[in-house]
């Protein structure tokens, strides 16, 4: 029993991390129709920046904020100076973002070396938590909590503020939105930075579970894609539900049928593509 309870919590924790990663990916794709394939690399870059920050100031939360800010700036420059120049050219954006991912991956390898670097769990969260007869690692519970808080905050931002309504107006009809005075491209840049920040901070928050290692980007990106295809691009709720489904399928797939884990992972995605191409909650066909 304890084993399955732990697997469940692991699923939830992975789901939480995937949400941090996929929320930005989904928003960016839904808003700007940019499939930003640097997202996995931004997650990894965040993790490595977190490593360096924590060498100076050993506080995970501060490191997550710092990495989020740094990756947001990087994302902003990428959007402004590269992606915007090839706006509307979908294939071009896919290729460019993939190319930039390789560059980031190589730069990380050069800077931080090829060995995995563990990121320590914050001391306060190192103790196991006892719930009923089960014992859980506290940090994983905290990760789930963070994902839920971020999800609620993003929901409130998008659905309950004027800024969020302006962004949604820009999604609905970008030209008409600009005609009522909304600076659509500036707003979209902001969203791009926000998505990058979430990925970067997610990399640090995932650190105590995943650590920072070469290939983290390539491990995370397919999971983010699955989340977005499952949940539906542009939908926060979709990213949330899709992230936890993916977290469960992956964790239990690895635990039960390790040889088929990847096949099992892609199964729900194929079903969704076959029967509901917009994803569970999406607005567009992927």
């Amino acid at each position: 029993m304890q084993y399955w309870a732990i697997q469940t919590l692991n699923s939830l924790a992975l789901g939480g991390l995937l949400f941090l990663l996929a929320a930005g990916f989904s928003l960016i794709f839904g808003l700007m129709r940019i499939a930003n394939l640097t997202h996995g690399a931004l997650f990894m870059l965040g993790a490595y920046i977190g490593v360096s920050v924590m060498r100076q100031w050993p506080n995970l939360w501060f490191a997550a904020l710092a990495a989020g800010a740094a990756v947001a700036i990087f994302g902003g420059l990428l959007e402004r100076f590269i992606l915007r120049q090839i706006g509307g050219n979908v294939l071009g954006q896919v290729l460019v973002t993939l190319g930039v991912s390789f560059i980031i991956a190589d730069a990380c390898l050069l800077t931080w070396g090829g060995d995995p670097i563990p990121i320590p769990t914050p001391p306060l969260l190192q103790m196991p938590v006892r719930i009923g007869s089960f014992i859980f690692p506290a940090y994983r519970l905290a990760v789930v909590g963070i994902a839920v808080v971020v999800a609620i905050a993003l929901y409130l931002l998008m659905e309950r503020t004027r800024l969020g309504a302006m962004i949604r107006a820009g999604v609905d009809d970008p030209q008409m939105a600009s005609a009522v005075g909304i600076p659509v491209s500036r707003l979209f840049s902001t969203v791009f930075c926000l998505g990058a920040a979430l990925a970067g901070a997610g990399g640090v928050i995932g650190g105590p579970i995943l650590s920072a290692y070469p290939g983290l980007d390539a491990d995370m990106l397919p999971l983010a894609l699955i989340v977005v295809i499952l949940g539906g691009a542009g939908s926060l709720l979709g990213a949330f539900v899709g992230a936890f489904i993916t977290g469960f399928v992956y964790t239990f797939g690895v635990a039960l049928l390790p040889d088929l884990a990847y096949v099992i992972l892609f199964l729900p995605m194929i079903l969704v593509i076959a029967f509901r191409p917009r994803g569970l909650f999406g607005k567009f066909a992927a």
């Binding site: 004027r162 309504a165 302006m166 999604v171 009809d173 005609a179």
Partner: peptide
């Protein structure tokens, strides 16, 4: 505009507030 082009997925109030 011709054809109105209201923001269909925003509420009436949001259509006004954003403008």
């Amino acid at each position: 505009p011709q054809g109105r082009r209201v923001f269909a997925r925003l509420t009436v109030k949001e259509n006004l507030v954003v403008a």
